[in-house]
Measured scan of single mutants.
Amino acid sequence: TSSHKLRLYERDDYRGLMSELTDDCACVPELFRLPEIYSLHVLEGCWVLYEMPNYRGRQYLLRPGDYRRYHDWGGADAKVGSLRRVTDL
């Protein structure tokens, strides 16, 4: 099985509160109590970021690497509604 891990930060450049995720999350704002995510670091696996909860809205593919600001993943703003692991490519 492949492993997945990413870290979410409330501010750009990996500042502020950090939360780690290793499984799908249908509602990021509810789980982490963060209305917006300004940076993230994908440590393992690929993920799909959705701008709205319950895997809706615009989708962004996140490969392992650094995303210091939301425009690094192509986002128009810092809204992160849900995240899902990519298990098949």
Rank of each mutant, 00 (worst) to 15 (best):
40 L>D: 01
75 G>K: 15
6 L>Q: 03
74 G>V: 03
81 G>I: 02
9 Y>L: 02
83 L>Q: 05
57 G>Q: 05
47 W>V: 01
62 L>K: 01
64 P>Y: 02
63 R>M: 09
58 R>F: 15
16 G>C: 06
18 M>I: 07
25 C>G: 02
56 R>P: 01
7 R>M: 07
40 L>I: 14
37 I>L: 11
48 V>Q: 09
3 S>E: 09
51 E>N: 00
1 T>Y: 13
4 H>W: 11
85 R>H: 02
78 A>G: 14
1 T>S: 15
3 S>M: 07
57 G>L: 05
25 C>E: 03
75 G>E: 01
45 G>I: 03
55 Y>E: 00
32 F>Q: 10
15 R>L: 09
64 P>M: 01
65 G>A: 02
38 Y>M: 15
79 K>R: 13
18 M>Y: 13
30 E>Y: 06
29 P>Q: 15
70 Y>I: 10
35 P>I: 08
43 L>T: 04
76 A>T: 13
15 R>F: 07
35 P>E: 14
83 L>W: 03
67 Y>M: 04
89 L>H: 15
33 R>K: 13
66 D>F: 06
40 L>W: 01
32 F>G: 11
80 V>H: 00
58 R>T: 07
4 H>F: 15
62 L>W: 06
63 R>L: 09
32 F>P: 12
81 G>H: 00
16 G>N: 06
5 K>L: 10
36 E>V: 10
73 W>S: 05
59 Q>K: 12
14 Y>E: 04
25 C>I: 00
8 L>S: 02
24 D>Y: 00
41 H>S: 10
69 R>F: 09
64 P>S: 04
13 D>C: 14
16 G>T: 04
16 G>W: 05
47 W>R: 04
13 D>G: 09
28 V>T: 02
72 D>C: 11
24 D>W: 03
83 L>H: 01
47 W>M: 09
59 Q>I: 02
48 V>C: 11
18 M>L: 11
26 A>Q: 10
34 L>W: 09
74 G>A: 08
31 L>N: 13
64 P>F: 03
55 Y>R: 02
2 S>I: 13
6 L>C: 04
58 R>E: 08
82 S>T: 01
33 R>Y: 12
75 G>V: 01
38 Y>F: 15
56 R>H: 12
67 Y>T: 00
36 E>S: 14
43 L>V: 13
83 L>P: 02
59 Q>Y: 14
21 L>Q: 00
39 S>C: 05
55 Y>N: 05
30 E>A: 09
86 V>P: 02
29 P>S: 12
27 C>W: 02
57 G>M: 00
24 D>C: 03
46 C>M: 13
71 H>K: 13
11 R>F: 14
5 K>N: 00
45 G>Y: 03
80 V>A: 04
38 Y>W: 13
89 L>M: 14
88 D>H: 15
50 Y>I: 15
27 C>H: 09
46 C>L: 12
61 L>C: 10
4 H>T: 05
25 C>K: 07
47 W>S: 01
23 D>K: 11
72 D>N: 07
7 R>L: 11
50 Y>R: 04
36 E>T: 14
42 V>N: 00
57 G>H: 07
78 A>N: 10
55 Y>W: 06
3 S>N: 14
3 S>C: 12
69 R>H: 14
5 K>M: 11
16 G>Y: 07
10 E>S: 12
44 E>K: 15
33 R>S: 11
47 W>A: 01
55 Y>S: 02
61 L>F: 13
35 P>R: 13
38 Y>Q: 12
15 R>C: 11
54 N>F: 06
77 D>P: 12
31 L>C: 11
9 Y>E: 02
60 Y>F: 15
75 G>L: 01
79 K>A: 08
82 S>L: 06
17 L>W: 13
87 T>I: 06
77 D>Q: 10
1 T>N: 11
22 T>K: 14
75 G>T: 08
1 T>F: 15
80 V>K: 03
40 L>R: 00
2 S>D: 11
64 P>C: 02
56 R>C: 07
58 R>Q: 15
25 C>L: 01
88 D>R: 06
30 E>G: 11
42 V>A: 01
56 R>S: 10
27 C>Q: 07
29 P>L: 11
86 V>C: 10
23 D>Q: 07
82 S>A: 02
34 L>M: 15
2 S>M: 14
12 D>A: 11
22 T>M: 14
38 Y>E: 12
81 G>R: 03
82 S>K: 00
62 L>N: 04
35 P>G: 12
58 R>Y: 08
83 L>V: 09
59 Q>N: 09
19 S>T: 13
51 E>C: 02
67 Y>F: 07
38 Y>L: 13
8 L>V: 09
14 Y>D: 06
43 L>Y: 09
25 C>S: 06
42 V>L: 03
79 K>P: 03
74 G>H: 12
54 N>E: 10
